[in-house]
Each structure stands twice: as structure tokens, then as C-alpha cells.
């Protein structure tokens, strides 16, 4: 059974439908990129998959006992975070906030997990630094480490490399690739079609609905892919 199945899902904002008749599923071990132009409904779809927004029509079914606490999420940064006085360790550890259900405090295991993830992402050395004083790449690593603390089965990424330089972008994608190899299911929203095709195994192209759903290789030769990839080169 797939982890997530969308059945005839329509999505919208305040009565305005932005995407309709969405049918697809996310299977365990997928590395799925959701791409499309601004306003194509890709971010709204992600919100629906994360249960932050109810679909207007249709059903989203969660299989294999997938609970919200199994989910990791690398969100786009909010204005609140730009000036937030918290150490990297505090931010990363907050990914474990659901690990003990209603129990209020973190366990030693949670703290160890946070340390492990920071070591994995190479930010152990700056764990006591203030989040607001970090570079964009370091902030994104801290938020990815937090998402990894929360993710047991599936990791959602919303435009993970926006505003980062090419070197940091490659590093981040390598880390995500590594996680995928270790069995994590990845669902990423991206406007960067080249990176999406390069790194992910499967592409879901949105344009008011699902325009294309298949492997990255198939996408390159498809009509939708040829136009979107080609179109980007002239930008």
C-alpha cells in the first residue's frame, strides 16, 4: 500500500480552485519532485499532503500507518525566524517535539538524535551559535537537521535551495540523496526543473492539475518536459 494516495483531489483558495482532479500516490522509497510554474498549485498540494489545508474535493489517504509525527518538513523560512534568538541546538532539537507525545520534556535519546543529525550535516561546531547570525546555507542545514529529527518515514521539502549559492545547493542535494539511499521517502517542491530532473527519481508536473507523472528520464523526453526544461533555458 502506498504511503499517500490522492484520489480526485481538487485544491483551492477561498473558493478559487487552483488545481483539480489530482490522482497520484507516493510510495515508500520514492524521491518525488513536484514542479510547475508559480500558481500551478504545487505549494497548495504540498500543504494538503501535510494536512495543513483540507482539499476542496476528493480524498487524501495515508497508508502504512503514516502518522503526522512520522513526517519531517523543511519549510520555507518565515519572517519570524530571521530575527529569532535561538541556538542551532535548540532549533534542531525542536524537531523532536512530538517524539514523546504529550510528555513535556526531551529525553536523552532526543538530544543524542539532535547531536547526530547536526554532526551529519556538519553543523555540530556551530551548535551554540545564534540562528539569526548564520549564513543562509547554515540556516538551511539547521532546518534540515530539525526536519531529519522529526522524519521517521517521509521528508517533505519546500523549495529547499531557494537563495542558496550553487556550491551549497549541490551539498544540500547530496545530503538529501544520501538520506534517500538510506531508505527515506522524499517529496520535494521545486521551481528549479534542472535540479529536480537531475536528482529525483520521479517528477510530478503540476499545471492546474497533474500534467505529467513519471520517472525523470521519461519526463525529459515528454512534451511537458521538453517545453518546461527548454523554456527555462531561455529565462
Amino acid at each position: 500500500m502506498p504511503l499517500i494516495t490522492c484520489e480526485n483531489v481538487s485544491l483551492g483558495y477561498e473558493g478559487l480552485t487552483v488545481a483539480r482532479d489530482i490522482n497520484f500516490s507516493v510510495n515508500r522509497g520514492d524521491y518525488l519532485s513536484i514542479i510547475g510554474r508559480n500558481g500551478s498549485g504545487k505549494s497548495t498540494l504540498l500543504k494538503a499532503l501535510l494536512r495543513l489545508k483540507a482539499p476542496e474535493k476528493g480524498k487524501i489517504i495515508y497508508g502504512e500507518g503514516l502518522r503526522q509525527s512520522d513526517i519531517g518538513y523543511l519549510a520555507q523560512q518565515t519572517p519570524v525566524q530571521k530575527d529569532f534568538p535561538a541556538s542551532v541546538f535548540e532549533v534542531v532539537l525542536s524537531g523532536c517535539v512530538k517524539s514523546r507525545g504529550p510528555f513535556p520534556f526531551y529525553s536523552p535519546d532526543d538530544k543524542k538524535k539532535a547531536h547526530d543529525k547536526m554532526a551529519l550535516l556538519g553543523i555540530e561546531g556551530i551548535k551554540n551559535k545564534c540562528f539569526r547570525e548564520l549564513s543562509g546555507g547554515q540556516q538551511q542545514r539547521a532546518l534540515l537537521a530539525r526536519a531529519m529529527c522529526a522524519a521517521d518515514k517521509i521528508l517533505f521539502l519546500d523549495e529547499p535551495v531557494t537563495g542558496l549559492d550553487p556550491v551549497v545547493t549541490t551539498e544540500l542535494f547530496n545530503i538529501i540523496n544520501e538520506m534517500h539511499k538510506n531508505g527515506m521517502t522524499i517529496v520535494m517542491v521545486s521551481h528549479d526543473v534542472h535540479c529536480a530532473v537531475k536528482y529525483s527519481g520521479r517528477i510530478l508536473h503540476m499545471n492546474g492539475g497533474v500534467l505529467f507523472d513519471g520517472t525523470a528520464e521519461e519526463y525529459k523526453t515528454s512534451a511537458a518536459g521538453a517545453e518546461f526544461i527548454g523554456g527555462h533555458k531561455h529565462d
Binding site: L50, I71, Y73, E90, V97
Partner: peptide
Amino acid sequence: FAVTFDETFAAATG
């Protein structure tokens, strides 16, 4: 702390 730092993340993770 979790809700103050990032409401969306907190909500998405339950």
C-alpha cells in the same frame, strides 16, 4: 518554543 519558532512545521509534524 516549537510553536513560536515555526508554526507551520509544528502543525505539519502533528
